[in-house]
């Protein structure tokens, strides 16, 4: 698998994640407004060791490609990953978190997702990229639809948010849909 490389978008620059970025991710993932939307929101607070184990280990093993999202002046604002890259079925799962909430709703996510899709379909020659997001995360769903993702299913009560079951949306984009967009 070709390693992650720098991806330059219109608003965002994605550069391959480094081990010394992990404390920043630890901070973001323990910020309440960010944590609200995380699949693992009901875990205890993330420690640096948790981040290293769940986040960094798959990158080192080559199953995940991960980038730090930066603004054009180099401010780190979030993290984007292609998870469980499967060269046999030629698919991967996309996960994006903008950890600095001041940068939400400003098109950074959309720009970053578009760059990562280009990497997935061209550099990795994948056929399909999918993702799962909270069904009530309308900001996220809008961003993904703008990038060409299609709603493929509604998973009932798939996770807990602060103890309460919530539905999740599964979305996918195929190579030809991306090429036509």
């Amino acid at each position: 698998m070709p390693p992650a490389r720098v991806l330059q978008g219109e608003k965002t620059r994605l550069r391959p994640l480094r081990e010394d970025d992990l404390p920043l991710i630890e901070r973001w993932f323990n910020t309440p407004e960010v944590r609200h939307w995380l699949h693992q929101s009901d875990r205890p607070d993330a420690t640096l060791d948790d981040v290293r184990r769940h986040f960094w280990a798959p990158v080192e093993e080559g199953r995940t490609a991960a980038w730090l999202m930066e603004t054009s002046d180099g401010t780190p604002i979030g993290v984007l990953r292609l998870l469980d890259i499967d060269p046999h079925h030629r698919r991967a799962e996309l996960a994006v978190s903008i950890g600095e909430s001041a940068y939400w709703d400003s098109g950074f996510g959309t720009d970053a997702v578009r760059q990562s899709l280009q990497f997935a379909f061209e550099d990795l020659a994948l056929r399909r990229v999918d993702l799962i997001t909270d069904a009530d995360n309308e900001r996220a769903a809008r961003c993904y639809e703008k990038c060409g993702f299609v709603r493929e299913g509604l998973l009932r009560e798939r996770r807990l948010r602060f103890g309460k079951p919530i539905d999740m949306l599964v979305m996918g984009i195929l190579r030809e849909e991306w090429a036509d967009a």
């Binding site: 999918d130 493929e152 299913g153 509604l154 009932r156 599964v170 996918g172 195929l174």
Partner: peptide
Amino acid sequence: EGLLRQHRLLDGEFGNTVVMSIL
């Protein structure tokens, strides 16, 4: 609950995967 399109390579062709659940 859902249909994941072209999710799986089977016999040289990409096939769909069905997601199901029970609560």
